[in-house]
Design a protein around this nucleic acid. Structure first.
Lengths: 110, 110
DNA sequence: TCAGTATATGAACAGACAGTAATATAGCAT
DNA sequence: ATGCTATATTACTGTCTGTTCATATACTGA
């Protein structure tokens, strides 16, 4: 039995999905899942420029996906939302399933 | 230990998140989680107009989130991706957690 | 065949947003 | 204080996409 969700809740959910709907932000999160990093680290690891990384981090932080710890000149970011890993895993599993279905379809002929 | 994902995979993942990053499509999926519906049903249930619903359904179908079954004049759509429910649940749980943290913070004073 | 209905699609418009360059802010070192 | 470094922010631009209206397609019934 499915419980219908109110439109306002779906708006909030959509908003959170939208934050994850960006390759650059996923790259950043992917690196951060390996542990705390500074902005400069992320610039190096992702190949994005500094302004861009800072903006994406601001968005991720506003949605509470990441935390920031300031220390001197540096800002250390880390993943604060444990569901990030889970959400990406689910998406990846599904992508693999689809790839398998696709190749199975092709090998048996349409 | 976190396994870094290749950029191309993250692009595909982002693409799937983007499909879910739309209140209108979440409304449609929310209705479809209650069972198979025609386009007209969805128009009525969501309040979106017919062209709009058809377009969102085309997007959902292209990403394999929903299936279509044609019968005469009617097109019956249903959720084909079991992870949709799971993904939304995770997002909702997280929203609730955040709401609790927020209110806890407010009640104890900053 | 013709009318009517359900769904899909095309064109046009408006709003949102990622990328970039330039600049601002803030801490550190000499 | 001055210069240097790390990060944040602002303004701008181009692109993408959701919405709507109009129209096309496809099936049904008379």
């Amino acid at each position: 039995m499915h419980q219908r969700l109110p439109a306002e809740v779906l708006e909030l959910v959509a908003e959170r999905f939208r934050v994850l709907a960006e390759p650059a932000r996923l790259r950043i999160l992917d690196v951060l899942l390996g542990g705390e990093r500074t902005v400069s680290d992320l610039v190096e690891d992702t190949g994005l420029n500094q302004a861009n990384v800072s903006k994406h981090l601001a968005i991720l932080r506003a949605s509470n996906f990441v935390d920031r710890r300031k220390e001197g000149l540096y800002a250390y970011y880390s993943v604060s939302d444990p569901s990030v890993d889970q959400l990406c895993s689910i998406m990846c599993s599904r992508l693999e399933e689809q790839a398998e279905e696709q190749s199975a379809l092709l090998s048996t002929g349409s």
